[in-house]
């Protein structure tokens, strides 16, 4: 019984967080704020669903694979966001009009690509 409630709670949290992430991707004003929503909330949402699945099955094969899925998302989602953000900024995607400061532009080294 407790296990069923836990599984349901984790699945619902995961579904709600996916909705929040997509709402952020649709609604926020520029690429970088959208990436905030996609990276953090998307990762936590799919991790919550994975945890729910791990509790539901409860055997060692599924748990080890679930841990693999979560670790993989925690490692790759920030790296992907970092690469897209850097490439987009260098290719001239503009920041939101209300962005306060941009220290990267004022004293960063936006020189030639080195890779």
């Amino acid at each position: 019984m407790i296990r069923e409630i836990l599984v349901s709670a984790f699945l619902l949290i995961g579904g709600l967080l996916s909705l929040v992430a997509v709402a952020g991707v649709l609604r926020l004003p520029d690429l970088f704020t959208r990436m905030h929503a996609a990276t953090k909330t998307g990762t936590v949402g799919v991790s919550a669903i994975t945890i729910g699945m791990m509790i539901h099955f409860g055997n060692i094969t599924v748990t080890s694979r679930g841990v693999l899925v979560i670790a993989f998302f925690l490692l790759t989602a920030p790296v992907a966001a970092h690469m897209i953000g850097r490439a987009a900024y260098r290719s001239g995607v503009s920041l939101w009009i209300l962005t306060r400061i941009d220290e990267w532009k004022t004293h960063g080294d936006l020189g030639e690509e080195d890779d």
């Binding site: 709402a23 926020l28 990267w104 532009k105």
Partner: peptide, 15 residues
């Protein structure tokens, strides 16, 4: 942040 009205945000890039 998604629910709030947008002009309340103050994003920025810092080093």
């Amino acid at each position: 942040d998604v629910i709030k009205p947008l002009p309340l945000m103050r994003p920025g890039v810092i080093g």
